[in-house]
Design a protein around this nucleic acid. Structure first.
Lengths: 226, 226
DNA sequence: GACGCCATACCGACTGGTTGGTATGGTTGC
DNA sequence: GCAACCATACCAACCAGTCGGTATGGCGTC
């Protein structure tokens, strides 16, 4: 903040390195030397900023929440007025960001919690908090859409929001197993179809693959705020 | 097979230990000492049966495929004649086995592939193979149901089968984050609803929670084979 | 504005314990 | 006697974490 922005400070570089390396190798396999090399700092610098590897992990989750929170808050789909369209555009957005290498778009929290849920309760809690946080944001839009288009439906917006997160996390696992993002896009397309049906959209029975959210264009077709 | 069944041989005990410990702590965090202690054998015995930790992991995946393959092959839902009912009963079965502690019902393959997809290509391939294997079994039932109830629908049985696996894997991640199986059951209930709708079942708009597959009873209501 | 003072940031060699893996020798069944 | 099976002792590499130290810059004092 107060510093000049010529080059990011060591702490930020370490946090960015953590996101990258942990998403690639997992938390346990990531060594402090890995992180220091990636960040271009030394061990001394690491322990100046973080008390332990676990403390870094907790800080990395915070960092992740900040970055992804900003990404979704500033995404174009948030400008869509109609809540049902907004929810579907959110899912389209999740599909659209499946770009680059696997560690570039998979989720830090889902990756870490698998390794740590029994052994590192603080990390597990942090991951749970991050996932729940995002699910709440999604749930708000779903609730608005439900109120307008399916007020009497028997499902809860929070449950559906959590289900969207589960489907996306599972899509990441399949993508990692296959070494390709393609299957993840397929899963998100099915998720979209389901959420659309929950919100009262009857699927047109056109022949072909499931609706491809990228191809149909996530934005530009509906009214925007302001 | 050829041995007497007084006590399981060391190799089997090691494989069973691997399933348990790896599902609890993850692959990387699992040490050979952990496995040997859990199995009640020594390091010498371990390296007599397995060339390395990675070889054990590959054998553990094989072991997993055998066990789970048998579990699903012998499950009561396979006796249901109507393919659509059979598919839904499969999903109900997936919900019904969400019992006990988290490491008891979560998936070895999904857990391992998250840690190893970039660092241990052989393990990743083994996990991919196991998941695809099971998905193919599910896809066969889905294809039969589609042929009968939704022959002109635009989706592919294989894609839907993979989606079911993604949703279930994601449900495990949420369950681990929350430390409870409850959320996983919620996710599987949503998955059931989606697959039912794909197969032409219009959801009754009864008020209340999403359809609970356990409560409605997975078996005993429909015609059985033989 | 020179000086002493101290906090923050960063460095890198070192350590004690752990890990995957090896070497070797003993025991059992055929 | 010999091959499969298992145990003990051991090793080199690696790991998280420690520690003594340097560089820098802000701040008060005279």
């Amino acid at each position: 903040m107060t510093e000049s922005d010529t080059i990011a400070p060591a702490k930020t570089r370490l946090l960015d390195a953590a996101l990258k390396v942990i998403r690639t190798k997992g938390y346990v396999a990531t060594t402090l030397d890995d992180l220091c090399t990636e960040a271009g700092v030394t061990k001394g610098s690491f322990f100046h900023h973080f008390k332990s590897k676990e403390e870094l992990a907790l800080a990395a989750v915070e960092h992740w929440n900040t970055l992804t929170g900003g990404l979704f808050a500033q995404a174009p789909y948030t400008q869509i007025v109609d809540p049902r369209e907004r929810v579907l555009a959110y899912i389209d957005f999740r599909s659209a960001i499946l770009q680059g290498e696997l560690p570039d778009f998979t989720c830090l929290l889902g990756t870490m919690v698998q390794e740590t849920f029994e052994t590192h309760p603080r990390i597990r809690d942090a991951c749970e908090h991050g996932i729940t946080l995002h699910a709440r944001v999604v749930a708000a839009d779903i609730a608005a859409a439900k109120a307008q288009y399916a007020p009497d439906a028997p499902w809860q917006p929070e449950d559906v929001a959590l289900y969207t997160q589960a489907a996306i996390q599972g899509a990441f696992i399949l993508a990692k197993a296959r070494g390709s993002a393609e299957i993840a896009a397929n899963c998100v397309a099915h998720l979209r179809r389901y959420v659309a049906s929950l919100l009262g959209i009857v699927q047109d029975a056109e022949p072909g693959l499931p609706t491809n959210p990228i191809a149909r264009g996530a934005t530009g077709k509906t009214t925007k705020k302001r």
